[in-house]
């Protein structure tokens, strides 16, 4: 399980990561720059990675958080979104029917839609899955000039983050965003300011599949229970009318 660690104190907001992402995925460069104003966080169908000002002089990269228990994967009705063993949540354009439930389900508002296309698809960060397969690290991490982005095993990065904030407690808030939120994510944040602007929840948030999946697994049982009780009810009422009919005959 791989992860990216974002150290907000090191990010200068140069947007090198965005540039690298756009070039890596062969996105429309002009649209990536231009359409950023059309959404609240700057993520668009041509911009999977964005840099947001989170506080005075503080910036942070935002893209798909690659949750450990991804809501979109659980919600997609055709299984078009899947989680790989590397931790990447990837999208299969061949399956998608365009229902956009993933966009509703994502707690971070990540998936974007190609609204202007006649045959549109969902677009989002894939943790550079094809590069991972080749043994390379994600393009954004490679491009970062300040080591604000680091890539590695999730456990190792958590260890690094913990040691970094322990070593210099005055510099960091002693909280690793993404360690537990929504069941944990593969993009971790270490910061000295609050990160509400990135869509992190204010209080503890549980993984969304944890809410829905126990319910849906009960569905077949509920269906069978309803069917059985209908048959039972039907039988009882039938029997009652039968008995009442015969009772009426006896009285006569």
């Amino acid at each position: 399980m791989y992860a990216i660690l974002v150290d907000v104190t090191r990010c200068t907001g140069c947007e090198r990561c965005v540039e690298a992402c756009v070039l890596e995925h062969d996105l429309n460069i002009r649209a990536a720059d231009k359409d950023r104003a059309t959404t609240r966080d700057g993520l668009t169908a041509n911009r999977f990675c964005t840099v947001l000002p989170v506080a005075e002089g503080r910036f942070a990269r935002k893209s798909c958080m690659h949750c450990l228990e991804p809501s979109c994967v659980s919600a997609c009705l055709v299984g078009g979104l899947t989680q790989t063993e590397e931790g990447a949540v990837i999208y299969d354009a061949d399956k998608c029917i365009g229902c956009r439930y993933c966009m509703l389900a994502c707690p971070f508002h990540i998936p974007r839609y190609e609204w202007s296309a006649t045959v549109p698809f969902v677009r989002k960060c894939s943790l550079c899955f094809t590069r991972l397969k080749k043994g390379e690290i994600p393009a954004c991490v490679e491009a970062c000039p300040n080591q604000a982005l680091e890539f590695g095993e999730r456990e190792d990065l958590l260890e690094i983050a913990r040691s970094r904030s322990n070593k210099d407690p005055s510099k960091y808030i002693s909280h690793i965003w993404g360690e537990h939120e929504f069941g944990g994510t593969c993009v971790l944040y270490l910061s000295d300011v609050d990160l509400d602007a990135l869509g992190w929840p204010e209080q503890e948030a549980v993984a969304i599949p944890g809410i829905t999946e126990p319910l849906i697994s009960k569905t077949p049982h509920i269906g069978i229970a309803v069917l059985a009780s209908l048959c039972g009810l039907n039988w009882i009422i039938k029997r009652r009318t039968q008995l009442m009919g015969s009772a009426g005959e006896e009285e006569k």
């Binding site: 659980s74 919600a75 009705l77 055709v78 299984g79 399956k95 319910l215 849906i216 569905t219």
Partner: peptide, 10 residues
């Protein structure tokens, strides 16, 4: 194409 964990699928 099935995804049994999705309410939309159901």
């Amino acid at each position: 194409m099935w995804n049994e964990t999705s309410f939309l699928f159901e």
